[in-house]
Nucleic acid binder design. Structure first.
Lengths: 154, 154
DNA sequence: GATGAAATCCGAGTCAC
DNA sequence: GTGACTCGGATTTCATC
């Protein structure tokens, strides 16, 4: 995977990560390039996948998704089919923010946002333990979000 | 916490979450409002904290942060001071994307991005186990990112 | 092949209503 | 909330190195 990012590209990525609404003119001035050059470089960063998307980050508490839960999942069987089926089902559940296959005592970790604990209990009983091949889940309620979704450091 | 979001505001939030670079003109058309009205509403969504920030999401693999690790942490003591000291130290480590105080077998879960396993092992030995009050850590290497940082569903 | 200056065009932001 | 008006930035072209 070629990383043809010169110092100007890196600076642009860092600035756009902090503020995705930065105007091309301001960005150009900040990195010391002309607006035309800056514009062309920005287009390239998108076209070549360095920037996956630009997202307005909505405050969870403001849209009734203030409760965060981490769930460790163990499957019945450790077969490729079993994993594939589970992953496919997970992708259809919109309240799951993260789903990672891990090495260790669990098969998967899920990061879930819901309105409150009652919501979670309903979802847990109706949708999580009903996921294909689930043997066991362990729920970790988040009591304090010290750092949530920090920007990438590079 | 008052949620004075009408259906148009909600639609705007969802669209901006999918594409934070959407122009005001396009957004206005998409939600069926005049550009001036849409502009004022957008300003309000920012001013009142519904949108925390707009971020260009950089592809981790493209900037040598392709390795993801979840770490469960147990502290020596469960005192407020001990927690506070740990949290303060964590906030200074830029490779930690998430740090959540949880209820259960662990005190904290960390989500960490680094270049590769060698990076992580160095960081683990030099910085994680050196965090104040850490009794034990359990490392879960992520073998597959099924869903990472999905957009909020609301 | 990439750059920057200039030129055009469109949208952001502001006004009166 | 709407419609118009102005100004600044986005985007393209083009000459240049």
């Amino acid at each position: 995977m070629p990383h043809d990012l010169d110092p100007i590209d890196l600076k642009m990525l860092r600035l756009l990560q902090k503020n995705g609404r930065l105007s091309n003119a301001d960005l150009a001035q900040a990195v010391g390039a002309s607006p035309a050059t800056c514009h062309r470089r920005t287009q390239r960063l998108f076209a070549e996948g360095y920037i996956r998307q630009v997202r307005a980050m909505v405050t969870p508490q403001k849209v009734d998704r203030g409760a965060l839960v981490v769930v460790g999942v163990v499957l019945d069987r450790s077969t490729p089919d079993s994993f594939a089926e589970f992953e496919k089902a997970v992708a259809a559940l919109p309240f799951i923010l993260d789903c990672h296959l891990v090495a260790g005592d669990f098969d998967y970790f899920l990061k879930i946002r819901v309105g409150d604990m009652a919501d979670f209990n309903r979802i847990h009983g109706q949708q999580l333990i009903a996921l294909p091949g689930v043997r066991q889940t362990r729920t970790f309620f988040v009591m304090k979000e010290v750092v949530d979704n920090a920007a990438l450091d590079f």
